[in-house]
Amino acid sequence: MSILISDEILDSVRRELKGALSSVQIITAYCKEPSFLHLDGYINDGVKEKRLLVRFRMDDILKGSTDFSIIECGIRAGWQVYICFDLHAKTYIIDNKRGLIGSANATNSGLSIGKNRNMEIATLVDIEPKDVEKINKLFDDAILIDSALLRKLKSQINAVGKNGQQEIYSWDASITTMFNPHIDTLFSYELPEDFNLRNGEYFSFLDETYNGDIVKFKELFRWSNAYLWLLAILKENKGCLYFGTLAEKLHNILISDPKPYRRDVKQMLANLLSLIDKLGMEEIVIDRPNYSQRISLRK
């Protein structure tokens, strides 16, 4: 295994795509049409399985990080196109045997195509059967684009600007609720620490400094693994759990070395619920009918 930097990444991706026999899978937070077509051009016609997974947040489209046209472009080129709103990975997988994993998005700057280049780093690794299962799970949890969803996405992106200006944009609930990831594990660093929610405060679990824009901060938090896990675990338990039971479920899913003490897990959960309360997350209701907090999905 060797470390690849900038131009070496593009050379390696091209070489691997040329040698692909049966399948190619590209997983990228950002994706630009010219870069995607450049990569697709290296794949021979005998490769029948081609899958693209892109983050595709509305803000990514409006800021130009990802091209909306990548969906139709990919479908026309014979790809299955998936979207996933919490994606950060950049991975290129060939024949489920080799994978290039690193920081390079499928964009000109990410892959050093043209003049504007980022300094990226990656490595080429062998893909094992257990890795294939993880890769398939990413696609299983994502949303496969069909014609009906494409029309809905187009309608919402075309409506932007007609209802006034705002700091951050997102797809409406008819789209976002289609994304139902299965969070099987959490790390302690994916949960909020004790906080004050004041200007300049850094939230390491989001890698974000709070600047007073609560709308933007809520949107970032909405797609955090901790919040997605909470929504999913409540759905699995008829929409309601009490604090003690929820803390036990959090303890069971946490991966850390060493595993946190139960009292620490309770504090982690308390921090999470406190942030939900301060942000006024619409999906969750927190009350205390007796002595223990009750956490419910809003009906």
Rank of each mutant, 00 (worst) to 15 (best):
I3M: 14
L4I: 13
D11A: 13
V13N: 08
R15Y: 12
I26L: 13
T28Q: 00
Y30V: 01
Y30N: 14
K32N: 15
K32P: 12
K32R: 15
E33A: 15
E33Q: 15
P34E: 15
P34C: 14
L39K: 06
L39M: 14
I43D: 01
N44Y: 09
D45W: 03
D45L: 08
E49T: 15
V54P: 03
F56W: 01
S69Q: 13
I75V: 14
R76S: 09
Q80W: 01
Q80H: 09
L87G: 03
R98L: 12
G99P: 02
L100R: 01
G102Q: 03
G102L: 10
G102P: 08
L111Y: 10
S112D: 06
G114M: 11
T123D: 07
L124N: 09
V125C: 05
D126M: 11
E128R: 12
E128K: 13
D131C: 04
K134S: 10
A142D: 10
A159V: 02
V160C: 06
N163A: 13
E167N: 14
Y169G: 00
Y169P: 01
S170E: 09
A173N: 12
I175W: 05
T177Q: 15
M178F: 02
I183K: 06
I183A: 03
D184V: 07
Y189A: 08
Y189G: 01
E190D: 03
R198L: 06
N199T: 14
N199V: 15
E201C: 07
Y202V: 05
S204E: 14
F205Q: 12
F205L: 04
D207A: 14
D207S: 13
N211I: 12
D213G: 03
I214N: 10
K216V: 12
F217Y: 11
E219N: 12
L220V: 10
F221R: 06
R222A: 13
S224W: 07
N225V: 00
W229G: 05
L231D: 07
I233Y: 04
E236N: 05
K238V: 02
G239Q: 08
C240S: 15
L241G: 00
A247Q: 07
L250D: 03
H251K: 11
I253G: 10
L254W: 01
S256R: 07
S256M: 08
D257K: 15
P258R: 00
R262W: 08
A270E: 12
L272Q: 11
L273E: 02
L279P: 01
G280Q: 07
G280P: 01
D287C: 06
D287M: 05
R288I: 04
N290W: 05
S292T: 09
S292Y: 08
I295S: 00
S296F: 04
